[in-house]
Write a protein that binds this DNA or RNA. Structure first.
Lengths: 237, 237
DNA sequence: TACTGCAATATTGTATACAATGGACAGTTT
DNA sequence: AAACTGTCCATTGTATACAATATTGCAGTA
């Protein structure tokens, strides 16, 4: 989900553009709308709390209200949208406390994931992780920010998958998305120096050092939490 | 939506009965259907893998297909239903591996929850937990199975809530539901002696012994896992 | 000014209608 | 017999229509 999400839009998100690619695809409209809406929310194109009327979205997508309704119901379960019966839908709000709770839980789960990954990853997966480590180190050395951003994202998913627990993977995906969302609604985060921590975790996993991997991964997320706290304070001022 | 619609049809699982209560309520039909369907699946009234056609359900509920569709979309996100575009919906399947993963994760999260609860619960919550403990002990002593079953359920929720992390509460609710679902699709589980373990966990939480609470809670779920494994083997024979 | 009542409007909730797809089955061809 | 093909039927996907509810604006009153 990377390619041509070009920022060629004015103030309102240009759904028609993202729309064209889908026409001939085989997924149904409601799924496409769900994905587009989810991405729009997570990237901050819709502000938190902003009202989402069915007719408004339907017109923006040039579809009927039905697929929009289904998408909104799905996003509600995911926690990105808040629906009040007979009143309508809004982009969900995250309180400061909730942000803390997200980070707290994510730290625990990331640690758990790294622990499992270190214990369980097959030789094949180990090779893949080593490859990811090399790529990241190279990008870090040459300061290739675009590649690094991409690798940072894949890193978390790879660790989760290597842990071999599908439900843990799902939960972490949800929490990762929320973290992304938090950052999208705050002043630019400082993601530099992030890879160093990722590299250390990868090395521990590859070395099958579950205890170290777990501690490093947990601390890594806690660092992210501190970064968010810093950015939040800055925003308050 | 008058209340007299109750005695219409009774060929399908008796939704009409559950339906009557809802009429005057203020939640929308799609939500009511979601809840009813969820309960039906979790309690095993629909077998895993069973096909769920929109018209079939719509007729059973005596509504149009729209609310049913929305409910199915929601239940898909929750993992209880599996939807294939243009083919339809089925009650989801759980492989043996997935059952193991659910238990594994639930054990970790229950441990985490108990740890947090022991650390964080206020005096007021502590009193509530003590009350729950007393009630349970009494029901256990008098072998009041109905009450015990009820208390067993509330126990897990109370611990989770006392942990003061909303997202952890949500994840555990999902995993608890899945556990319930697993049992519903297997020969009768042996829930006796269950309270003893709950009581020990409660005592540790009340005593603010986070480490002990965590270990006991984790082990408790692992015991449930063993019970499931036993029941599964029995079923295979 | 502040407030109540009420009509007008906006929006959601649900039903119905139609289009498109997938699967089963019979008949044909090789 | 096996593979192919076209047709019918069941079902899903989407649009439109209508009903129910919430919100807004404003006149009128104290």
């Amino acid at each position: 989900m990377t390619d041509e999400q070009a920022e060629n839009d004015q103030d309102k998100p240009d759904f028609a553009a993202a729309w064209a690619d889908i026409g001939s695809s085989h997924k149904s409209i409601n799924m496409a709308i769900t994905e587009t809406l989810r991405a729009a929310i997570l990237s901050g194109k819709f502000k938190t709390g902003e009202r989402l009327t069915e007719v408004g979205l339907a017109k923006a997508f040039d579809v009927s209200r039905n697929p929009v309704r289904e998408a909104l119901r799905v996003l509600e379960v995911e926690g990105l949208v808040e629906i009040n019966p007979r009143k309508g839908a809004r982009v969900a709000l995250l309180t400061v406390d909730e942000v803390q709770e997200i980070i707290e839980l994510r730290a625990e789960l990331e640690g758990m994931s790294a622990k499992y990954a270190a214990r369980r990853c097959s030789d094949e997966v180990r090779v893949n992780l080593q490859h990811l480590l090399n790529e990241g180190n190279r990008a870090d050395a040459t300061n290739d920010v675009a590649v690094l951003a991409e690798l940072n994202n894949t890193f978390h998913n790879q660790i989760a998958v290597a842990g071999k627990n599908r439900f843990l993977v799902g939960f972490m995906k949800a929490l990762n998305e929320k973290t992304q969302w938090i950052f999208a609604n705050r002043p630019e985060p400082n993601m530099a120096g992030n890879w160093k921590e990722h590299a250390a975790i990868l090395e521990a996993v590859i070395a099958a050092d579950d205890e170290l991997a777990s501690v490093l991964a947990k601390r890594h997320v806690e660092d992210i939490g501190k970064e968010i706290a810093r950015a939040t304070e800055e925003q308050e001022r």
